[in-house]
Design a protein around this nucleic acid. Structure first.
Length: 873
RNA sequence: GGGCGUGUAGCUCAGUUGGUCAGAGCGCUGCGUUCACAUCGCAGAGGUCACAAGUUCGAGCCUUGUCACGCCCACCA
């Protein structure tokens, strides 16, 4: 496919046309296709983050993903075939939540499938949500994610990301589900996974278990309630300060510190829980701290993870009073574990709590406590930290249930070692990882009581009474994968046996979405027949998901393959509001990536992203994009100008060599250019795209402001060969050096270069310019720097005299070291030209430093345009 | 409570191993340019490099302490 009809550059820079032309051209020519015949050494592998599909792309996505793209493009030009996949993380809770709101529906797994149901977008969400079956719900998720994903894809294409779109995946696709289920079975066989019935952190809104990594602390306004407990015998009493009085019915013990003298006398005795007359032991335990509250506290099932830990050791029964929905369960005192000295009284009080939320129950129990006189004094306000599921609005509860756990705790040391083998950029981010690994205190709960996710490939046998045997699950055969145990049947069973005694039931949970996204290396490899293996080269990601995505990926690579998943991890920063807070949703929605691409052009937005260093949060500053647009414009115009000179030069052999570049100024300039490239390459070798851009950009402005001006006259003259070929080389090099950053404008220019015969179809397939290309051609920086400095000083003198730059120089005395004088006097024609000096106006005297000793300008000079004005005026 | 990071011109940020390191862009002011580019060029003003002490011939850069901001982690009765 050809790029465009007319090969020459347009008169003006038409960004939109260029972008459309490029996008089409790159796709049609498979410019970014990964070549699976190349060896590992010739391949650069990127573990691209699959963005969560739950709404729209944020400018922060564009920021970090573009930085990775710049690296990918550099590596491609550096001679590697780049394995650069892209996926959409569409399974999981964020998607479910969006789907519920978008269609105003909710999943009720009890309902049968309704083939006629078609989800429709509802603007108005005030009506009660329509309940639909699990299968209908998943179909709705599929539908909405598919449309969201096509929008994401457009934005990524518009910004010019060079993914190999043949390597596209979604985390809910059958292929991904298969890989995720294989991972589960592998870890299960290796005994890294087990199902455990235990108190688990539970979000009551989404009614699902959640993992430690998804928990965050939030400051909450609460109250201390001072509650009087009688000691058995009724002679004595003590006060407990608690923020959660609604847990009184689940009290299993009272504890105080062993050294606390105030409570020594109670140890070994029993306390009576008010309202419910539960007899509980008063126990000495390090768990309590003397100077907190009243120093004595109640242990309930469960107020916090400390309660869970204490309960596990104690051998006490579990009294679960909070249900999965966060409401008080309907329990009966005098039955089972709910003992009471006075069941009738306990039940009378507890009946008033049944069905209430914890918050409502707290208010009610305060009433009851006040009535019976157990509540001492006023409630005392306190702000304290409470654990929340990161996506939830209510505190988490500990609910006992059966869940699948990945045994990470026993891997702690290996995880830390693996983290040390990986190169973190910036390096201090490794600390974040290590601290998280060190602080891990729970295994990874991977089951979620949700619907849109990867099902566990597991069924349970039912005994003759219809009770499931959780200890001996039926694991799917690998050949069956992917399976949905709710609709598929285990080997040697029939659908008729589902739910019947001696039959089976399917595991109805789905996996934590991280359990699947921690497999992005394996998922990506599944898309190709390449012989690639872990470890990959780089994992780009943001720092907020070090404890989840990075951590779990390292864990899985370790458990599956006993290797690190990548050699380098590049941590990007955040885009912050001007007030340095993390950019808010509302603002992000106003300034959408597409809006910015439309306003400044994709290359300019990319320029903005490329300027920021890794790992550093930066305030959003739109002006950088305006600056980028100026650069893009300059690249276009300077190239166009240079190409016009070349076209009119009468030169047709564009080969650049020591024979063709004969002028010393040109040699000296090319030396400058060459050393900038050396610097840029060095920066890129440590993934420092920002450093690379800086040196290239700096040299480019030098080229425009100085070199072009210096050689202009010579390039138009008879003896123009060296200057013209130097321009050819300069433009060719700049186009390639800017290509990773500004792929659109550089492609547009590359396609118009008249010396492209036999070269790759796209600039993005050419080789990265290195200093080796200049071998034998270049000299050193002395001459160019000298002319450049003098040019600038003469310019300054003219500016300060309020004269036009065209003003001729009558006399210019230059002081310089002998070495510089000999260079300048032999090759000073450009200096004469650029300063517009009269013949023989330049003189040299010896001095220690290069400087202008004396300058005399032609004050009688009148520019052409002024003359005309005078005539008219 | 523990850890990490940041603090450089009005704003956003560079400053690699301590010695032209006091910078860039934007903004502001002035001047110029219209035959590559007004999406332009040139120049100017502006900073005790958070503060204090120390190491050193020499510190924005190293050490210690202080302050401010941000982030991460922490059993939060």
């Amino acid at each position: 496919m050809s790029y465009k009809e007319n090969k020459s550059l347009d008169q003006r820079l038409e960004l939109e046309e260029i972008e459309n032309r490029c996008k089409k051209f790159w796709l049609e020519n498979n410019v970014y296709a990964y070549d699976n015949t190349k060896s590992r050494e010739e391949t650069f592998i990127i573990d691209t983050p699959p963005p969560t599909v739950s709404g729209s792309l944020h400018i922060g996505h564009i920021f970090s993903y573009t930085q990775t793209d710049v690296i990918a493009r550099y590596q491609r030009m550096h001679g590697k075939t780049v394995f650069y996949p892209i996926g959409w993380d569409d399974n999981g809770l964020p998607t479910e939540r969006r789907v519920q709101n978008y269609y105003n529906i909710t999943c009720n797994p009890e309902l049968p499938y309704d083939a006629s149901f078609k989800p429709e977008h509802k603007e108005d969400n005030s009506a009660p949500r329509r309940e639909i079956s699990r299968k209908n719900f998943i179909e709705a998720c599929d539908k909405l994610t598919a449309s969201d994903e096509s929008i994401f894809e457009d934005v990524f294409k518009n910004i010019g990301h060079s993914y190999d779109w043949n390597l596209k995946y979604t985390t809910i696709s059958p292929e991904t589900i298969k890989i995720s289920q294989e991972s589960f079975i592998d870890l299960l066989e290796k005994k890294y996974i087990a199902s455990v019935e235990a108190p688990t952190m539970w979000d009551v809104t989404f009614q699902s278990a959640v993992a430690q990594a998804e928990i965050e602390d939030r400051e909450v306004q609460g109250f201390f309630h001072d509650i009087k407990f009688e000691v058995e015998g009724g002679q004595d009493s003590f006060i407990i300060s608690t923020t959660r009085p609604e847990l009184l019915p689940a009290c299993i013990a009272i504890v105080a510190h062993p050294d606390d003298e105030r409570y020594q006398k109670y140890f070994g005795k029993k306390a009576i829980v008010p309202l419910f007359d539960i007899e509980v032991d008063i126990v000495a335990s390090e768990h309590a701290e003397k100077d907190k509250g009243t120093g004595i506290m109640m242990v309930c099932t469960f107020g916090d993870s400390a309660d869970v830990a204490w309960w596990k050791k104690s051998g006490q029964p579990l009294k679960q009073i909070i249900g999965p929905d966060g409401r008080m369960l309907d329990i009966e005192y005098g039955q089972g574990v709910f003992t009471s000295k006075n069941p009738a009284k306990a039940n009378q009080n507890y009946r008033q709590l049944v069905g209430l939320t914890t918050k409502q129950a707290r208010a009610k129990i305060v009433e009851l406590l006040a009535e019976c006189g157990a509540l001492q004094g006023e409630l005392r306000p306190v702000t304290h930290m409470v654990k929340f599921y990161e996506k939830g609005n209510l505190p988490i509860e500990f609910v006992s249930s059966r869940q699948w756990f990945v045994k990470l705790l026993e891997q702690k040391d290996n995880l830390i070692k693996a983290g040390q083998q990986i190169k973190w950029k910036p390096a201090h981010m490794q600390r974040r990882y290590e601290e998280w690994a060190n602080g891990l205190n729970q295994d990874w709960c991977i089951s979620r009581q949700r619907f849109f996710g990867v099902p566990f490939p597991v069924w349970y046998k039912l005994d003759s009474h219809g009770y499931p045997d959780y200890d001996h699950p039926i694991i799917a055969d690998r050949k069956q994968l992917p399976v949905d145990p709710m609709s598929d049947v285990p080997l040697n069973y029939t659908e008729e046996q589902r739910g019947k005694p001696n039959g089976f039931i399917g595991d109805k949970d789905v996996m934590d979405t991280w359990a699947t996204s921690a497999l992005t290396p394996e998922i990506a490899l599944g898309l190709t027949n390449s012989p690639l293996k872990l470890p990959f080269d780089i994992r780009p990601q943001a720092h907020d998901i070090i404890r989840t995505w990075a951590f779990y990926t390292i864990a899985k690579a370790l458990m599956h393959h006993n290797t690190i998943p990548w050699t380098d991890i590049l941590i990007s920063g955040f885009i912050l509001d001007p007030d340095r807070k993390k950019m808010s949703k509302s603002k992000g929605n106003v300034i959408t990536p597409q809006h910015l691409i439309d306003k400044y052009g994709a290359d300019s937005v990319r320029y903005w992203a490329s300027r920021a260093k890794l790992g550093t949060d930066t305030a959003f500053e739109e002006q950088i994009m305006a600056q980028g647009k100026k650069l893009i414009n300059k690249i276009f115009n300077a190239s166009k100008f240079a190409m016009t000179i070349v076209a009119n030069s009468g030169i047709s052999d564009y080969s650049v060599s020591a024979d063709s570049i004969t002028n010393e100024t040109d040699k000296s300039w090319l030396y400058k250019l060459s050393s900038s490239l050396e610097g840029a390459t060095k920066y890129f070798s440590t993934f420092d795209y920002a450093g690379a851009l800086e040196v290239i950009e700096k040299r480019f402005w030098d080229f425009c402001d100085n070199y072009l001006e210096i050689i202009k006259k010579r390039a138009y003259s008879e003896d123009n060969r060296s200057a013209v070929l130097s321009l050819v080389k300069s433009i060719d090099v700049f186009v390639r050096a800017f290509a990773p950053f500004c792929p659109f404008v550089t492609e547009e220019i590359y396609q118009a270069l008249p010396w492209n015969n036999g070269r790759p179809v796209s600039v993005h397939l050419t080789s990265w310019p290195t200093e080796q290309e200049f071998a034998g051609i270049i000299s050193n920086d002395m001459l160019y720097d000298s002319i450049s400095q003098l040019t600038s000083e003469v310019r300054k003198a003219k500016t300060e005299a309020n004269l036009t730059q065209k003003t001729p120089v009558k006399k210019l005395v230059i002081a310089a070291p002998a070495k510089v004088i000999s260079l300048l006097s032999a090759h000073g024609i450009d200096l004469e030209n650029v300063t517009n000096a009269y013949p023989n106006a330049i003189e040299y005297i010896e001095g220690s430093e290069l400087s202008i000793n004396k300058i005399e300008l032609d004050l009688d000079f009148v520019p052409e345009n002024k003359k005309k004005q005078d005539v008219v005026g």
